[in-house]
Nucleic acid binder design. Structure first.
Lengths: 203, 203, 203, 203
DNA sequence: CATGAATGAGGGTTCATTCAT
DNA sequence: TATGAATGAACCCTCATTCAT
């Protein structure tokens, strides 16, 4: 009972994710998903109360899962620069392992972000927390943490986006060192670093 | 006729842009736009052959207009680093002047980018061209130009996105110096620069 | 414009009323109505925002129209017994002229009555008002006006219902004198009437 | 099995009756009923072959049960006027004891009456038989028995309906004497009664 | 007996688009 | 040009019913 239900649910999620990414959410009908899974339309409603809810759950799982993974990654390191690097590498590995999920996240974020509640695990907050802490502890140059977070995330996400559109062919994992180095430069050395490095970004 | 037609068309575009950004493209009906302009539904078809076409024209105008503006900006400077800075400042100024347009571009890009033909003016190509040329001429550290383009653009675009969601309050113009500085760091010094700067990004 | 719209609306109402009575409201689809009018399904929504609203408007028009007619009828007479008689005769005439409307009212009342707002014209209130006034002015035997209203209305409505089911063949108009006489008996003589008549109903 | 089956069936009927009255038959799904009883949807089909059948059996049981009760009541008395009074009192007592059943009967009658076959016990026929016999035996004024039946029944049913809608607060039992008195007046004295009473209704 | 996943027809409704006026 | 009635396909969803477990 639970077994068959679970399996069906997983197949629905996989099919929905793929179709949403391939055709867009609005262009993908509940019937398309059902047909892809080999089910009738009505059957989907045993597993999800509505299409909106299906989209939201897919988004939420990926969104929160990513945040938790990033936080886990950050927790494995003690210095800010190493934390960032771990997160960058981790993200790249996740992307290569399941790019569909990230393309979906990228695709629907504008519609779903407003449903994200303050208490939820949130990758943006995860990154921001590492950066803000690094600034406070003097390992990262002081600056507006939101701006720096935006820049660091944009770096990564736009690279992933370029991959989606075929502008970049290499796997993200191969680019991880370069992305990490770019992050390092943007973050700059904190006050506790030895002098002589590049000046910080203030903003 | 042309005069009144032009004016009507401008009002349609303005209303459509606003509604598309506020509610999403699919959630905005032809009737919503017509009502916002004070027209009946059928009347819109005097000006645009279809909703898809309206979206595409809006996208294309903004997309090509941005590319042309960026190229114009780049042409005002002779050194790569100055070109980049001019483009960053120019983009920020444009964003502050008409953020709706950029939000629209950000919103619909995933659906429209595939319609962009090679010959069209393209902001990504504009940025990439400046970067590639800077590399060839030794003003920018050699690296994969696509990767560097992605990183530079991501920097800017994600910051703009953060603004959209209220994470960042300052106008983009105020952030332009910081964004330009970040770009400079990512691009690194070329082989013709004096030694002692940070190492280049290779990727 | 208005002309064609009005005409279509009238045809929709007539078809809907007939189908609702023939098959029941829930068993009648929007498509059935559209087909009966020779329209496509979507076209109905230019005239009515929803099926529920169509039902409600039909009910409301009939309900309020009946109330107004009854009040008009009552206003033509000065003595309570004559008022009642006028209302009974009037109702019977209306029924014979448009039995579909009354069958519809009878059919959907249980679902629509809760939407009736206190301020609305209401046939029950109209009848009750005449009865209550007759009691106050001593022309009708004092009793619980709600109970008496129920009895008087039930008299009439159940007769109409019997007609619907074919138990009674004669037109309501032919039965009006008998119905009026029955009402008279139920209402009884007021304190101002001469003695010797039947005793009043107290309840 | 029979024992548990019987109990389950009773719980299903009680839940169905309540939900049908509260929400309407069409608005009440098989799932609502199942959930109210603590069963799964499919399980109901062990007890009833279809929803229509469930509705019909509920109606039939109440309809025939009422007829039988009325006939039993009528059989306890020998004079027509006493018979009517007994039926009125009996109906009122039944209503107060199980108003849900009568509300259900009132609610679904328009849809179910056409399934009533001539041979079935039928409260309308029961009442009509008493009235017709009373006329034949000279205890009730001669008139169209169907009309008189309609009037008598309407008297009672509309009062019950008013109770449903809160227009009348007292229990039906308390109103029984008034209702009986009203019936007496409508029926009038037969030819065997002493002179001087009110004239008969002819119709 | 009971479960709950699945069916599939049908529900009301929306919407881009057309066209007579 | 502009209107708004009309189209018709497609949408998401509900629901009575069936059936393997």
């Amino acid at each position: 009972m639970s077994e068959a239900g679970e399996a069906t649910r997983a197949r629905i999620e996989a099919a929905a994710l793929r179709l949403f990414v391939e055709q867009g959410v609005d262009a993908t009908g509940i019937r398309d998903i059902a047909a892809a899974v080999g089910l009738s339309d009505g059957a989907l409603y045993r597993h999800y109360p509505s299409k909106d809810e299906l989209v939201w759950r897919l988004f939420r799982e990926g969104f929160e899962g990513l945040a938790e993974e990033l936080e886990h990654l950050a927790a494995t390191e003690r210095r800010a620069s190493r934390r960032i690097e771990a997160m960058v590498r981790g993200f790249c590995a996740l992307y290569d392992a399941d790019s569909l999920l990230f393309r979906f996240l990228l695709l629907v974020q504008h519609g779903q972000l407003q449903r994200v509640k303050p208490g939820m695990a949130n990758p943006v907050e995860s990154v921001r927390a590492v950066i803000a802490r690094g600034m406070k502890e003097g390992e990262i140059a002081s600056a507006d943490p939101d701006l720096v977070t935006a820049m660091v995330m944009g770096l990564i996400l736009q690279t992933a986006t370029f991959k989606v559109y075929g502008r970049i062919a290499k796997p993200m994992t191969a680019l991880a060192p370069s992305l990490a180095e770019a992050c390092r430069r943007i973050l700059g050395p904190g006050s506790r670093e030895k002098a002589g490095g590049p000046r910080k970004i203030k903003a």
